[in-house]
Design a protein around this nucleic acid. Structure first.
Length: 724
DNA sequence: CTCCCTTATTCTGTAATGCTCAT
DNA sequence: CATGAGCATTACAGAATAAGGGA
């Protein structure tokens, strides 16, 4: 049963199987406890479609909102334009200067030149109609109802304030001293700043690593004055403890700030966001993802990174390239500074970039996940995955046939693809020497797998053990087809540790082949496809229609978890895991005790009610019964979260939720089972997946007919339920 | 009910990867 | 084919914030 999670016979690593199997009984147990309170039954049975209930339940923002609500429930009518539209920074300018724009730009709200029928019909940007806090929600731009532009350009108009540069260094107070060889030493500002970076990390593992320390020392010495360089030669003689203590104290003080201070700080921060956090793209205001330039610091590579500890230098305006329209207000560099360059390249999505000094890579400032540019791409990604579904059977046949090919390179390609499909491995590009030694499928080396003709009663078992992205360990034992096994033996013949398993293959070759099988197909599409498919299948399998909401959510999380396991999304067990688990357990025990007690009381009341039979006594009994039910429900919820927590100990759900699971599957599930969307997506997630929440109905099927995104919403299930 | 502290969740930061295109 | 630039996506850790729970 749990095997249903796997794309094919047994894709899930063993852990997953164990987890799912081990907990299925629990699940059944819960689903059979019929103690739902009346309201629950109602929500599910009664008229108003669940969705409506949901909308009402939208958690209210906070204090301010309360005030407003008190004053008067604002009427439903969508308040037109005026206020809601404020945010467009320089609309006037935009229209003014925007002559190269084609015709159809007469509507204030549809600045996109090619907006077709969809845009015309679309209710323009609708703000939050009811609640009207002064910090109003940004009006939603339903870009998904517009026709996608097909010229490959990302924008016509782009205006922004440029990135926010890190504050200059402020030297430490004089009493905070660095000691060398037991003696206080006043460092130059430059050397002190870098010393501070190290001091901050004093109680981190990094500072106990040799590579980190030697890289640090080397770079630190580069910023020292010649005198300092002469003196400071040995890290072991450096004493950063005063600096460290200073920073700790600073943190402490920050935490203990008064309410007023905190509020002021928050406002200041919001002002910064208001100024730098937004851009105007084709007449719409959209949030920028990372508008702050990365401040200087010590490079923290993951795993055994050869460059860990190196100094990440301060980025100055002179390093930064700005990208924006010619006719926009060009961002102003800080006083006395210049940008490296200002260009207007509408073929890319970034607003600014610079080259980072550790790896020589370019870093970009881009829009945030809720933006059209990102959302459209995301949507497209899932449509590609759905197209794969249409042809995946053929592709599988195809690579299975290739297991027998006369050509080694074809066989290797086939086996690699088999792994990518079955195990959701990453493509595995080659890497440079100066990066951490991690691999993906194509870059697997012979030492990363072990072949077992037989293991634990199974034939042809391959065990994997390697470090993948972010140096996360991948360990798995998989039973494979005999042909795959024999091929692997062949590939490994006459090879030794360090040799590539697939020596006639790399990602370009593989992707080129894939592209011939299906337009737009690359190795990573399989990951997306198998992840999303697994979610949908697991949801179907695990959800019980008549479960109360918490049980449904547990099912959802389990389905999500199956995907996370498939994709090997791990996390370090939270430091306080055991403790908090024990706490939870105690709560559960307490609750059980309460229930025991309540049960006893209930029984005696029942007796009293029956024999004596006064109205009062009956009432008392009824009351107790209800209380008891409530308690039981609370207990079920607690136990639910306990299993959920336990199962989640070292598994991270976020990554798959955010990057691999077609959000329409989740939206459809919520609609189908009357689960409020907030139970599955938090606020930012709802923003990111607005397009899906808006477009998917309960009938959405990931494995159904893909949509043609470029021609927009003229197929599929034209859902129009508003559901925020 | 408020306050304070602890724990859980969300958000931010930025590293690490995938993939295409030009040379 | 090999290599590297360019840019976009995916990834986890840690900081920040919110929520829970006891006094």
């Amino acid at each position: 049963m749990a095997l249903g999670a796997c794309p094919q016979e047994c894709a899930l690593p063993q852990v997953a199987l164990l987890l799912l199997l081990a907990h299925l009984p629990t699940l059944t147990f819960f689903s059979s406890v019929k103690t739902e309170p009346k309201e629950h039954i109602k929500t599910e049975v009664e008229e108003p479609p669940p969705m409506e209930v949901t909308v009402k339940e939208e958690p209210v923002e906070s204090e301010e909102e309360d005030k407003l609500v008190i004053s008067e429930p604002v009427k439903e009518e969508p308040m037109e334009e005026e206020e809601d539209e404020v945010p467009l920074v320089s609309r006037a300018r935009y229209h003014h200067n925007h002559q190269q724009e084609e015709e159809g730009d007469d509507d204030d709200d549809a600045p996109l030149p090619k907006a077709g029928k969809a845009a015309a019909a679309a209710p323009k940007e609708v703000g939050s109609p009811t609640k009207k806090a002064k910090k109003e929600e940004e009006p939603v731009w339903k870009w998904w109802e517009e026709t996608k532009r097909d010229d490959g350009l990302k924008w016509t108009f782009l205006e922004h304030k440029g990135p926010l540069i890190a504050d200059p260094y402020i030297p430490l107070p004089h009493h905070v001293k660095f000691y060398y060889n037991g003696e206080a030493m006043q460092l130059s500002s430059e050397a002190e700043e870098v010393a501070g970076f190290y001091a901050r990390m004093l109680d981190h593992d990094y500072t106990s690593k040799e590579v980190f320390n030697s890289n640090f020392m080397k770079d630190w010495r580069k910023v020292m004055t010649s005198k300092e360089k002469e003196i400071i030669t040995d890290l072991k003689k450096c004493d950063f403890r005063r600096l460290h203590a200073h920073f700790v104290q600073q943190n402490e003080e920050r935490k203990n700030r008064s309410k007023e201070e905190k509020k002021a700080l928050k406002e200041k921060n919001e002002a910064l966001i208001a100024e730098y956090g937004w851009c105007n793209i084709d007449g719409h205001r959209q949030r920028i993802g990372n508008f702050k330039v990365e401040p200087p610091g010590l490079f923290r590579g993951r795993g055994e990174h050869p460059k860990q500890g190196m100094l990440k230098r301060r980025i100055m305006p002179e390093d930064i390239i700005i990208n924006c329209s010619k006719d926009s207000v060009i961002p102003k560099p800080p006083d006395g500074h210049k940008w490296k360059e200002v260009r207007a390249d509408p073929s890319v999505t970034w607003l600014a970039c610079w080259v980072e000094n550790i790896q020589g890579q370019t870093k970009y400032v881009m829009l945030n996940a809720a933006s059209k540019l990102k959302g459209e791409k995301d949507w497209q990604k899932y449509e590609t995955a759905r197209r794969l579904h249409q042809t995946v059977d053929k592709i599988r046949e195809n690579y299975k046939a290739d297991f027998k090919s006369k050509e080694m390179r074809i066989r290797q390609r086939a086996v690699a693809l088999y792994f990518i499909d079955k195990l959701a491995l990453r493509a595995g590009n080659e890497k440079d020497e100066d990066q951490a030694d991690t691999v993906g499928c194509c870059s697997l080396r012979v030492e990363h797998i072990t072949l077992h003709e037989e293991k634990d009663g199974k034939e042809y078992v391959v065990s994997f053990d390697f470090l993948g992205k972010d140096s996360i360990r991948y360990q798995n034992e998989v039973q494979v087809e005999k042909r795959v096994f024999k091929n692997l033996q062949l590939f490994m013949e006459n090879k030794q540790e360090g040799d590539d398993l697939f020596d006639r293959l790399n990602t370009q070759i593989l992707n080129k082949h894939l592209n011939e099988l299906m337009e737009g197909l690359t190795a990573k599409v399989f990951r997306t496809y198998n992840a999303s498919r697994t979610l949908q299948e697991q949801l179907e399998l695990l959800t019980n229609d008549d479960d109360p909401i918490p049980a449904k959510i547990l099912s959802y999380n389990r389905a999500n978890r199956a995907v996370a396991v498939l994709c090997n999304h791990q996390r370090a067990a939270p430091k306080t895991f055991d403790k908090s688990m024990a706490n939870l357990q105690k709560k559960i025990d307490d609750k059980k005790e309460q229930i025991d007690e309540a049960e006893k009381e209930c029984k005696s009341l029942k007796k009293a009610a029956k024999s004596g039979g006064s109205q009062k006594e009956k009432m008392a009994h009824e009351k107790k019964k209800k209380a008891l039910e409530r308690l039981k429900e609370q207990l079920a919820k607690l136990e639910m979260s306990a299993t959920d927590k336990e199962e989640n100990k070292t598994i991270a759900l976020g990554t798959s939720k955010l990057n691999y699971l077609d959000p329409r599957i989740s939206v459809a599930w919520c609609k189908k089972y009357g689960v409020p969307i907030e139970k599955v997506y938090n606020k930012t997630q709802r923003q990111k997946f607005q397009w899906a929440i808006d477009m998917a109905t309960a009938e959405y099927n990931f494995m159904g007919e893909p949509m043609d995104i470029s021609r927009s919403n003229d197929c599929d299930d034209g859902g129009d339920e508003d559901y925020e």
